[in-house]
């Protein structure tokens, strides 16, 4: 009996410091993402006609402007912590021309501990993608026209490629809400109904311009990813993780994307945006510094 008592004492001595340890886990550390734009593992060189995509298009990139949202850090046990306390603030604009946008800091101290990955949404999801949520530039300049679904471009990747005739042609690889068009072109949308009241309603007798058939449905092309990476948050040791957009990967994976097929503009070509976004699922990777 006596022995058992002592065993109990020893056991609890073992356990108590253990408890103490979990208390320590509520310490905090700093976290930031460094966004990098790369082509085949090298930092992007803008305005340089030096890249070749999977379709064999020789191309250059002038600028990339895009939104990342709903960034969450995944703990070892699977719990997900938003990088901002307020979900509404968890949307970040990134611009190859604006250095400050390449660093995304957590807006509050992140609990220390082991983490196993990062989740994020490319672009804005249906809930978040509301017109006029940003009135100030540069975010407001990303607006996506109401007629095409409203909200914001997820991404503008602008550049030029050498087309099949050998001429240098501009391309706007713009992703956002896609549309399905009524091939008959019989009915249209009343642009008067918009914004918070939801998307347009049909209006009898309205004929959109002849080039455009009326829109019958909108498709949200945004996607979310959960990328694995082990990292540890500790007090006094800020963690910096590189989030890399591997630009060449927008153009293959699910299907090869050929500029000669899709041309210079795809905001009204859902098929092209669909291929791009399915490819895009593989376009991001994480790299821990050090």
């Amino acid at each position: 009996m006596k022995n058992l008592f002592w065993i109990g004492v020893i056991l609890s001595m073992l356990v108590i410091p253990g408890c103490k340890k979990t208390e320590e886990a509520t310490a905090f550390g700093d976290f930031s993402l460094k966004v990098k734009h790369e082509v085949e593992g090298e930092a992007l060189k803008t305005d340089a006609l030096i890249y070749t995509n999977a379709a064999g298009n020789r191309y250059m990139v002038t600028e990339i402007q895009w939104f990342i949202s709903d960034i969450q850090l995944i703990k070892e046990d699977g719990e997900a912590l938003g990088i901002t306390q307020n979900v509404d603030e968890n949307i970040f604009y990134i611009d190859t021309d604006i250095e400050e946008t390449h660093t995304i800091n957590s807006s509050y101290p992140i609990p220390s501990g082991n983490y196993s990955g990062i989740h994020f949404t490319f672009g804005l999801d249906k809930e978040a993608n509301k017109s006029h949520r940003f009135v100030n530039p540069p975010e407001s300049f990303m607006f996506w026209p109401e007629y095409l679904g409203g909200g914001y471009h997820y991404m503008k990747l602008n550049g030029k490629w050498i087309n099949e005739t050998g001429a240098i042609e501009p391309f706007n690889f713009h992703l956002g809400i896609g549309q399905e068009y009524d091939e008959g072109g019989k009915s249209g949308y009343d642009l008067f109904e918009f914004g918070d009241r939801g998307h347009y309603q049909h209006c009898d007798g309205y004929m959109p311009p002849q080039k455009l058939n009326s829109v019958t449905a909108f498709i949200h092309n945004n996607f979310s990813l959960k990328l694995p990476l082990n990292f540890t948050i500790k007090t006094g040791e800020p963690v910096e993780i590189d989030l890399i957009m591997n630009i060449e990967k927008w153009f293959y994976g699910y299907k090869v994307y050929d500029h000669d097929v899709w041309g210079g503009a795809i905001m009204q070509q859902q098929e092209a945006m669909d291929i791009a976004c399915r490819n895009g699922v593989e376009a991001f990777s994480l790299r821990s510094e050090k």
Binding site: S131, M142, N172, K211, A265, Q268
Partner: peptide
């Protein structure tokens, strides 16, 4: 307005604004 704000139309909005700008 639709022409102004569509790529297949007149495509003016990327530089000259629209509903969101």
């Amino acid at each position: 307005f639709i022409l102004f704000t569509t790529e297949e139309g007149a495509d003016c909005f990327h530089c000259h604004g629209g509903f969101g700008n």
